[in-house]
Simulated assay, not measured.
Amino acid sequence: MTLEIITPDKKFFDGEVTSVTVPGSMGSFEVLNNHAPIISTLDRGKIIIRTNAKTQTFFIKGGVIEVLNNKVMLLAEGVEIH
């Protein structure tokens, strides 16, 4: 599936992933291939991006996620790299 992470300043990430874990407002959840369509608000917290090659961890300042037809669009208020 494809993941796109966009902040107000720039496109932060765009590529193929196997899964992404996000800090949903009602608790963190993981999006996998063929996930049901969903739109959810996100709290400040950790996102984990997994590809076949590696796992990356970032922190977002909140935002919104939309999942539809194996395309994940994450609009983040900001991204922090630790």
Results as ranks from 00 to 15, higher is better:
G15I: 05
E16H: 12
I47D: 02
L75H: 10
E80T: 11
H35D: 09
I48V: 15
I81P: 00
K46F: 06
R50L: 02
T55G: 01
M73T: 15
E66V: 07
P37C: 08
T41W: 05
T7Y: 12
E30P: 05
L32F: 11
K71M: 02
S28L: 04
M1E: 02
I39Q: 04
M1L: 07
G78L: 04
D14K: 12
E16V: 11
N70Y: 02
S19V: 01
K10W: 03
G27T: 08
G24K: 07
E80S: 13
I47N: 06
M73E: 14
V64A: 07
E16Y: 08
M26P: 02
T41C: 06
K46W: 00
I5K: 00
T21A: 14
D9A: 13
V31P: 04
I49A: 10
T2N: 15
N52W: 00
S25D: 11
K71R: 14
L32H: 08
T41N: 12
P23W: 08
I81Y: 03
L42P: 03
T7K: 05
L32C: 06
G24Q: 07
H82D: 13
F58H: 14
E80K: 13
T55W: 00
P37M: 08
G45K: 06
F12T: 05
K46S: 07
A76L: 00
V22S: 13
G62L: 08
V20Q: 07
T18D: 10
M26C: 06
E30I: 13
I81R: 11
T51G: 09
A76R: 04
R44L: 12
M26S: 15
Q56G: 01
D14C: 02
P8E: 09
K46G: 05
K10L: 12
I5S: 04
S25I: 12
I5Y: 05
N33G: 00
S40N: 04
K46R: 14
N33T: 10
K10Y: 06
S25H: 06
R50S: 15
T21K: 15
E4N: 13
L74F: 09
I38T: 14
G62C: 04
K10M: 13
T21V: 12
K46H: 06
E80C: 02
N52A: 14
K71V: 05
S28A: 11
P8F: 07
Q56W: 01
V17I: 15
D43Y: 02
T41R: 06
I5Q: 01
E4K: 13
M1C: 03
H82Q: 11
T57P: 05
L42E: 01
V72D: 03
L74C: 09
V67S: 05
S28T: 09
T51D: 09
N70V: 02
L75D: 01
G62R: 03
I6Y: 03
V31W: 02
I81K: 11
K11D: 04
G24D: 06
I65A: 07
K10R: 15
F12I: 00
E66H: 05
V17T: 00
L32W: 08
N34W: 04
T7P: 05
